[in-house]
Simulated scan of single mutants.
Amino acid sequence: MKQNFTVRQGALDGVETFLAVARQRSFRRAAAALGVTPSAVSQAVRALEARLGAALFVRTTRNVGLTEAGQRFFERAAPAFAELIAAGEAARDLGQRPAGLLRLAVPRGVVPLILEPIIGPFCQAYPEIELEIAASDEMVDLAAGGFDAGIRFGQFIAADMVAVRLTAPFPFVVVGSPDYLRARKRPERIADLRDHACLRIRRANGSIAPWSFIDGNKTIEAIVAGPLVAHDYPTLLGAAIQGVGLAQVPAPIAKAPIADGRLRAVLTPFAVTTPGVFLYYSDRRQVLPKLRVFIEHVKLRNAAAPRGGTRKPKQTA
């Protein structure tokens, strides 16, 4: 049978006072050390003894000594209380200056594009912060996973999150290698994709994502087929460069291979635009200095662009 264990309210009341008296062997000297009156010390010790059900001190007119119960309590309470004080100081330290472990959950595809330019300057500016980047394309619960913040496409961030824009809105583009496009007729319409090898991505929930397009004011989700299913966009991009098929990927990660001729964009009139990439976290009031300075670092880096600032994005997916 499961038992319920709770910390009794006031369980630590009087412990600090007891330790002061035990060390000073005097109620008066303990009161002076604590900055309270001797009567307040006496009342706190009496209340602790009543709660424990045992006398902790032997009092005479000249001396104060520990009873056997008091000695046992002192031997175990003193180091425990010292650890509690140290724990409080450690927590207070992290709440007052940028230090400690900063854990970010990010998709693999954004690491080279967004984080790599930030990591070096940030780590140099804040050497007491240990930055951990957990690269995964799965949607994660920040609190359950022990993360300070995450980075995701704006349409996948819950509306109750606080978000900092990292990129401007950008399209998803369909790309293929020159060799692939020479071997097959270049698609001009969305319907032409039925004759092509289309590389697809599996979502975190297990479903295979359709390809999304805009035709005028109409949103179209095309069910495509092909020889490869991956869990991240860089894998799809690499396969498209190798000529395996067409891939629909975020435009920023395709920019370089398009520029150097390894890929060509197709169906660009139908490209759908996403809100962009955001850093997000759960509660503005709970932001520790380590995360606050990271957010400021990101803002400063993007200060020249009109996309900077914080907002709560509307949940669209």
Rank of each mutant, 00 (worst) to 15 (best):
G10I: 12
F27L: 04
A31S: 12
A32L: 15
V36S: 00
V36H: 02
A40T: 13
A40L: 06
V41M: 00
S42C: 06
S42H: 13
Q43R: 14
A44M: 06
V45S: 06
L48M: 09
A50N: 10
G53C: 10
L56S: 00
R59Y: 06
V64F: 09
V64E: 05
G65Y: 13
G70N: 02
Q71Y: 08
R72S: 07
F73K: 00
R76I: 10
A77F: 01
A78N: 10
P79K: 00
F81N: 12
L84P: 01
D93I: 00
L94S: 04
L94I: 10
G100E: 02
L101R: 14
R103D: 00
L104M: 09
V110H: 03
V111F: 07
L115D: 03
E116A: 14
G120F: 08
F122Q: 06
Q124K: 13
Y126M: 05
P127G: 07
E132G: 02
A134G: 04
A135F: 01
M139V: 12
V140C: 08
F147I: 04
G150N: 05
I151T: 13
I151Y: 12
F153R: 04
G154Q: 06
G154K: 04
F156Y: 13
A158S: 13
V164S: 03
R165E: 09
A168K: 07
F170G: 07
F170D: 09
S177F: 08
Y180G: 02
A183S: 11
R186D: 07
A191W: 03
H196A: 09
C198P: 01
L199P: 03
A204C: 03
A204V: 02
P210D: 12
P210R: 07
F213W: 01
F213Y: 04
I214T: 15
I214K: 13
G216T: 09
I220V: 15
E221R: 14
L228I: 14
V229T: 15
V229H: 08
V229K: 03
A230H: 02
L237P: 00
A240R: 03
I241A: 03
Q242W: 04
L246T: 02
A247Q: 01
P250S: 07
P250Q: 06
P252E: 03
I253C: 09
V266Q: 01
L267D: 09
P269C: 03
V277T: 12
L279D: 06
Y280V: 07
Y281T: 07
D283V: 03
R284C: 01
R284H: 07
R284I: 09
R285A: 13
K290V: 05
L291P: 04
F294L: 14
I295A: 06
H297Y: 02
K299P: 00
N302P: 00
R307P: 00
T310R: 05
T310M: 11
P313G: 08
A317T: 04
A317R: 12
